[in-house]
Measured scan of single mutants.
Amino acid sequence: MDETGKELVLALYDYQEKSPREVTMKKGDILTLLNSTNKDSWKVEVKITVNGKTYERQGFVPAAYVKKL
């Protein structure tokens, strides 16, 4: 869990989004878990840094590609 009590997951593999509802992640990324009720895909939040500014983006990733921490 992070400092706000949200559950975290670790990306086990790289994943490139295939639709606007998904998010891209790299192996080793730590993501905030938002919903894990679907056995196939979990909703997560990723933090992306562009030019020194951090943005948050929500979307789905394959459940088999992440592990709860």
Rank of each mutant, 00 (worst) to 15 (best):
L33S: 03
Y13C: 15
K26D: 01
G28I: 04
E22T: 05
T4A: 12
V9N: 00
D29S: 05
S41R: 14
Q58R: 10
K67Q: 13
V61P: 00
S41W: 15
T24W: 03
L12K: 03
T37S: 14
L8D: 02
D40W: 14
L10M: 13
G28T: 02
K27C: 06
T24R: 05
M1N: 13
V66W: 02
P62Q: 04
V44R: 00
V61H: 01
G59A: 03
L12P: 01
T4C: 15
F60I: 05
Y13M: 12
M25V: 11
G59P: 00
L31T: 01
I30V: 10
S41Y: 15
L10S: 03
D14P: 04
K18W: 03
G5R: 13
M25T: 02
T49E: 10
D2H: 15
Q58D: 05
L34M: 06
T32A: 08
Q58S: 11
D29W: 12
V66D: 03
T49K: 09
L12F: 03
M1K: 13
E56K: 15
P20A: 11
M25Q: 02
E17H: 08
A63P: 09
V44Q: 00
T4R: 14
Y55S: 09
S36F: 05
V50M: 11
W42P: 00
E7K: 09
K6V: 14
D40M: 11
L69Q: 03
Y65E: 04
Y15S: 01
K47H: 10
E56V: 15
K43V: 13
P20E: 11
T37G: 09
G52P: 00
K6M: 11
K27D: 02
T54S: 10
K6A: 11
G5H: 14
E22I: 03
V44L: 03
E17Q: 12
W42E: 00
Q16E: 14
K26A: 07
K68Q: 07
Q16L: 12
T32Q: 09
V50W: 07
S36E: 12
K67E: 14
V66Y: 01
Y65M: 15
N51K: 08
V44G: 00
V9D: 00
A11E: 01
P20V: 09
N51S: 08
P62H: 03
E17S: 15
R57T: 06
I30L: 07
T49C: 15
G5E: 13
I30M: 04
K47C: 12
E3F: 13
K27A: 11
M25F: 12
D40Q: 09
V50P: 00
A64W: 11
P62A: 05
L69S: 02
R21Y: 15
E45P: 00
M25N: 00
V44F: 03
T32Y: 10
W42T: 00
R21N: 15
D14Y: 04
S19Y: 07
V46S: 06
T4S: 13
S36N: 07
V9P: 00
Y15E: 01
G52F: 04
K27I: 05
G5Y: 13
K53I: 14
E56S: 15
K67D: 07
L34V: 10
I30H: 02
V9F: 04
L12W: 04
T32G: 05
Y65N: 07
G5P: 14
L10G: 01
L8S: 07
K6F: 11
L10Y: 10
I48M: 10
V9R: 00
K39I: 09
P62Y: 06
Y13Q: 12
N51M: 09
K18V: 08
K26F: 09
Y13D: 06
A64C: 15
Y15A: 01
R57A: 06
K43T: 06
K6Q: 11
W42Y: 05
